[in-house]
């Protein structure tokens, strides 16, 4: 039992220590954490049994918001960017959500895809506003009014992201445990029953949808700032697919899975691109197939199974790995 709780803490500590030991990993890990936030958004919806193939929309909306904030206010302010980006993503989520929560399953997925592709095409086409396919540069913003050098800024961004991710992970965990989270789960299992109880399934799903859009938005801002550039590729359907991919990889029903999945994904992707430049997509594809076919509970599921075997005591929910890490 103890081991089960200690390992996640050690893992978080390892991630926190890694940039000190190997500086070049810092930005890669920051990007992974940013993506992890977006994946968290996917996981919120998966809780209600719905899969969005268009959540890159909110990622991109927030990233471009950050870029515009930076452009309009001489470099911009990191905190302002995060607030504005997340807010715009949440509001966009509210409007898009009003339409899409009426639908389920494949229709839900496709409608989301449609919205994201419209935004993608818009970003590509309106060159004079959005910079077209080359996107917009995001200059290094100040942090609470302090101008920073790249080294300091990147370190701050990494540890800031780590803290944000832990906080967001905890908040999402709490949200999913709250009455509204339980009602979302009922949408997955038996929606009619929910309606009989006098609860509006649409309103419930909408609440979850806005939360998931906001999480994606927060991730998008971090990504934009860490990369220093935003491009329409942020909204491209393959990016949405990537989020779902990571969610499954990490373990679809767990908050911890979002981050474990995105860290592993980013590392595999970076090293596949570096050492198997000709076949990195194939490596990822095979990796994904193997997970779905042989370990459909994802990495967190594998971890739990392993712990169960070691400890011989079941009964702990996967999410508790994250709780233990707090």
């Amino acid at each position: 039992m103890a081991l089960r709780k200690i390992i996640p803490v050690l893992l978080v500590a390892l991630v926190a220590a890694l940039p000190l030991l190997a500086p070049f990993t810092q930005v890669m890990l920051t990007l992974a954490l940013a993506k992890g936030l977006a994946v968290l958004g996917i996981i919120v919806l998966l809780h209600a049994g719905q899969v969005s193939f268009g959540h890159a929309l909110f990622f991109a909306v927030a990233a471009y918001t950050a870029a515009f904030v930076g452009k309009s206010f001489a470099g911009g302010e990191l905190v302002a960017m995060m607030v504005a980006g997340t807010l715009v993503a949440a509001v966009t989520g509210l409007f898009v959500g009003l339409f899409v929560v009426r639908y389920r399953h494949i229709f839900f997925g496709m409608l989301n895809l449609a919205f994201s592709m419209i935004f993608f095409s818009f970003l590509e086409k309106f060159y004079h506003i959005t910079g077209g396919s080359d996107g917009l540069q995001v200059l290094r913003p100040s942090v609470l009014g302090i101008e920073m050098e790249r080294t300091g800024f990147e370190m701050l961004l990494f540890y800031g992201s780590l803290v944000i991710c832990l906080a967001a992970g905890w908040a999402t965990w709490a949200f999913l445990r709250s009455p509204i989270g339980n009602m979302m789960q009922t949408i997955k299992t038996n929606e009619i029953r929910l309606e009989y109880l006098g609860v509006s399934a649409r309103a419930t799903l909408l609440a979850g949808y806005v939360v998931s859009a906001a999480l994606c938005g927060l991730g998008g801002v971090l990504m934009a700032v860490a990369q220093g550039i935003v491009t329409p590729e942020y909204a491209w359907w393959i990016r949405s697919g990537e989020f779902v991919f990571i969610a499954i990889l990490g373990g679809a029903n767990s908050v911890a899975g979002a981050f474990v999945g995105s860290l592993v994904y980013e590392i595999v992707r970076t090293y596949a691109a570096a050492f198997a430049a000709d076949v990195w997509q194939m490596v990822l594809g095979v990796f994904l197939l193997a997970i779905i076919l042989f370990a459909s509970d994802g990495l967190v599921g594998m971890y739990n199974a392993l712990m169960d075997r070691l400890g011989g005591k079941g009964g702990m929910r996967t999410d508790d790995a994250r709780e233990a890490a707090e």
Binding site: F24, R269, A277
Partner: peptide
């Protein structure tokens, strides 16, 4: 490979 996308490019550049 520049075709691997912006994140991979920047990560590899740093590495």
């Amino acid at each position: 490979d520049e075709g691997a996308g912006g994140e991979a490019l920047l990560a590899e550049y740093r590495r």
